[in-house]
Design a protein around this nucleic acid. Sequence first.
DNA 1: ATTCTGACA
DNA 2: TGTCAGCA
Length: 155
Amino acid sequence: MEGESEHNEQRAMKIGQVARELNISVETIRMYETAGLILPEKTGSGQRLFDVNDVFWLNCIRRLIKEQGMNLEGIRRLLALMPCWNIKPCTAKDQQICPAVLKAEQPCWAMKEQLPPICKTANCRECAVYQSASKCTNLKTLLYGIRKRAMALTF
DNA sequence: ATTCTGACA
DNA sequence: TGTCAGCA
């Protein structure tokens, strides 16, 4: 059996283990990361570590692709539409220059360095924006903030 | 044995 | 997406 004897550690899985459990190749998982869909933890040596939420999210990505007719680009752009400014308490001034607010090219966590200080120094894996996205409830609630904002502008 | 990055007959 | 190289 595997070494599942860890206690406080949030039993992080290596890419090979994740690949086996989800029946996908490690190359594919790395590709999802390159596309900005997932943000696995990295050890000092560069080893990717996935927790249960990462695995769950990867599962959602697979379904979006295999059952919902989406592709990597589509998912990436969808995540890029997340109303991070409604989740993260950034100032109006930040929003005027934040690429995550002005553009919808990629998820905010995929361009961390270009973000204002509040987000630039944050741990994206622990940020509500990334976590809510990886919850993969349904795509509409994911964009609820957008609707709220649209309503405010319309009425 | 496993993972990592980068490249591509 | 696969896979082979050359490391760590």
